[in-house]
Amino acid sequence: MNTPLTIGDLTLESRFFLGTAGYPSPAILQQAIAASGTQVVTVGLKRQLAGQGGTNDFYKLIKASGARLLPNTAGCRSAREAVTLAHMAREVFDTHWIKLEVIGDDYTLQPDPFELVQAATTLAREGFEVFPYCTDDLVTCQRLLDAGCRILMPWGAPIGSGQGLLNPWALRTLRTRLPDVPLVLDAGIGSPAHAVQAMELGFDAVLVNSAVSQALDSVAMARAFKLAVEAGRLGWEAGVMASQDMARPSTPVTGRPFLL
């Protein structure tokens, strides 16, 4: 059991946030949520098509899971859009938590730091608990904290790419420079090994979606990530040994066995 993570008014036993998009069926999503042990799941809002109504089965199951909902502002390209969608999400999901996404590039889905900070400033002032999806840029992260964010969600790699942690140095630097800020590694994780790596770097949690939903067996992968996050966190808390270039024998022998 890892030490609990406190975010705002909530204390979490699980440090694994799970995305809910792209699962083969509602039943598999439901089982994956259960297998993951997650207490936080991400959701979204979609503009309805003409003549379309009702609530989809996926969302009904998510709501019934009992996990804390973290709505996102996916699809937004400007601070104005993101703020408006955040207001809608607060009403529909009845939460002041918002995963703030403001995308600046269509190919990499890289966050726009300028619009992101602007939206975060507005929303934090209005009482939202803002979870900004950002890059690993230290100065942007500092500006987001200045804007009123109390948590950060830096990417490991572009959304859905599964490339893992492309810049461990930058992520380690964030941990070092922002020791008291909850950091959630968001985006780019492709395998449980990446989750272990993020947690061993000292990240407080990870958010995974595609790596679970696109796995051959999403339910088994959800459990694999659960164990990986726990193992990585335990490794961080235990203190990973310092690496060195040359070998150092671990068995305390007395020289060579048959030579004096």
Binding site: A21, G44, L45, K46
Partner: peptide, 10 residues
Amino acid sequence: VFTFQPITGG
């Protein structure tokens, strides 16, 4: 007028 509904999300 636009209406928005809850959906799955990442």
